[in-house]
C-alpha cells in the first residue's frame, strides 16, 4: 500500500516535470510530437531533407539511386504561360545577344485594368525596393544615397537610356541581370516579367497614352483614398 502510494506520487512528479521541461518547444528546442509517423511525411515534401544515399541529382547515378531533378525540361511552358525568352545569356563581355534582344517584341497584348494592377503589384514587390514605387530610381534601399545600397539604381522614367530602351532589351536585363542587377527569372515567370515591362513602359513619359486603361483607374483610386 505504502509503496504503491510512493510509486504513484513519483510517477506523477516525473510526468509533470517531463511534460513541462523536456517536451515543450521554445528557444532552440523543437519539442516532441506523438505519433511521428503521422507527423512527418513519407512522401518527399518541399524542402524536406533528401537522403543522399538514396536520392541523386546526378543523371549518371540514375538507376543506382532515385534520380530526382526538380528543374523542368528545357523549353517547358506551363499552362497559361508564354514562350520562354528566345535569347541566351551573353558570355563574358560579349554583347551580341544584348543587342539582338532589341528585336524581341513583347508577346503580351496591352494589359487590361486588372492585369495592369497586378503588374503594378509585381513591380512594387520585386522592383520597387531599388527602382522606387515612383520608378524614379530612389527606392527604400537607396534612399538618395543614405540606404544600404551603394549605387544609384536606374531612374526608369527620367533616364533616356531606359525610356528609349526597346521592351526586348528590358526583358533581357530582367531575365539575365545587367551590371549589378541580378536575374529576376527565379522570382518572376516569363509572363510576369513581360507584364512588369508593360507597366514600366506605361509609366514612362510619352508612353502613357498607349495605356489609357491603366492610367485612368490609377487616378480613380487616388481620388478614393483621398
Amino acid at each position: 500500500m505504502r509503496t504503491t502510494k510512493i510509486l504513484s506520487f513519483g510517477l506523477m512528479a516525473l510526468l509533470a516535470t517531463g511534460f513541462t521541461s523536456c517536451f515543450r518547444a521554445g528557444g532552440h528546442n523543437t519539442g516532441t510530437v506523438y505519433m511521428p509517423d503521422m507527423a512527418y511525411s513519407r512522401a518527399v515534401e518541399t524542402y524536406a531533407y533528401r537522403d543522399s544515399s538514396k536520392f541523386t541529382t546526378d543523371a549518371n547515378d540514375a538507376g543506382f539511386k532515385i534520380y530526382y531533378d526538380a528543374t523542368p525540361v528545357a523549353g517547358t511552358i506551363k499552362r497559361g504561360g508564354v514562350s520562354v525568352f528566345p535569347l541566351t545569356k551573353d558570355a563574358g563581355s560579349d554583347t551580341a545577344n544584348y543587342v539582338a534582344s532589341k528585336q524581341v517584341v513583347n508577346p503580351l497584348p496591352a494589359l487590361n485594368e486588372a492585369e495592369m494592377a497586378e503588374a503594378k503589384r509585381l513591380y512594387n514587390v520585386n522592383c520597387g525596393i531599388c527602382h522606387g514605387e515612383k520608378l524614379d530610381g530612389n527606392g527604400p534601399l537607396y534612399k538618395g544615397g543614405e540606404g544600404p545600397y551603394p549605387i544609384a539604381p536606374k531612374n526608369l522614367v527620367a533616364d533616356p537610356v531606359v525610356s528609349k530602351m526597346p521592351e526586348g532589351q528590358m526583358m533581357y536585363s530582367v531575365t539575365y541581370g545587367k551590371n549589378l542587377m541580378g536575374s529576376y527569372a527565379a522570382q518572376l515567370s516569363t509572363r510576369q516579367r513581360w507584364m512588369v515591362i508593360h507597366y514600366v513602359k506605361s509609366m514612362q513619359p510619352g508612353n502613357q497614352l498607349t495605356a489609357p486603361a491603366a492610367t485612368a483607374p490609377a487616378a480613380d483610386t487616388t481620388k478614393k483614398t483621398k
Binding site: 509533470a16 511534460f19 517536451f23 515543450r24 518547444a25 521554445g26 528557444g27 523543437t30 519539442g31 510530437v33
Partner: peptide, 11 residues
C-alpha cells in the same frame, strides 16, 4: 503539456 505535445510555439 499533453495538449502542447507536437506544438512548437516560441521555437
Amino acid at each position: 503539456s499533453a495538449i502542447g505535445l507536437g506544438r512548437q510555439t516560441n521555437y
